[in-house]
Amino acid sequence: MQLTLFYIFAAVLVFAATMVITSRNPVHSAMFLVLAFFNAAALWLMAEAEFLGVVLVVVYVGAVMVLFLFVVMMLDINIAPLREGFTRYLPIGAAVALVMLAQMVMVLSSDHIQLISSEAAPSGVADNTRAIGSVLYTDYLYPFELAGIVLLVAIVAAIMLTLRRRPGVKRQNPAKQVRVRKADRLRVLQIPAESRIVPNAAAQAEDKK
């Protein structure tokens, strides 16, 4: 049962990954990438890494790919010129793929590198969310904080790159808009209901136009 499920997820994953690079439409590619992430998450769930599997969906499917799709949808890409490069770059791509395959085989079949099996997880801890948390905030605290600072710098840099003030452009100032009070915009006039309304200066100016 478990083996059958594994092969189903793996087959869909490989199919989706292939479609990402062969699909003619960039939006289709992005959607196939979503499918690939989803199946990878399912595989992780089957390996009892439920925290990593669900976080993969939250981060990559829920946020990164949404923004990716957001950009791809706005582009009106002419597909034909993109296809021309495909055969030209095929040898380089194949070479890179072969090197990666060789590395993977070396890592997975090597006796020197012991892959951490699921039994190696801290014993006595039932859920691996707790296990990851306890390791992350004790043994790996400094690398973890370093990663946080690198991400923060990246955020600040991205905002600085897009933050530009052009002169001569009318723009709304939200702070000013929020500070507006009722009294600034609204005037309540008391007009006697029965008597004739005396036309005020504004109405006269209107008439002259």
Binding site: M31, V34, E50, F51, V54, V55, V57, V58, V61, G62, A63, V66, L69, F70, M73, A126, D127, T129
Partner: peptide
Amino acid sequence: INVGLLYVLAMTSMGVYGVL
């Protein structure tokens, strides 16, 4: 499941794909 709350967040964030 152990990661119920995360699962909820993951699935609700999937809903936006329908709209997109």
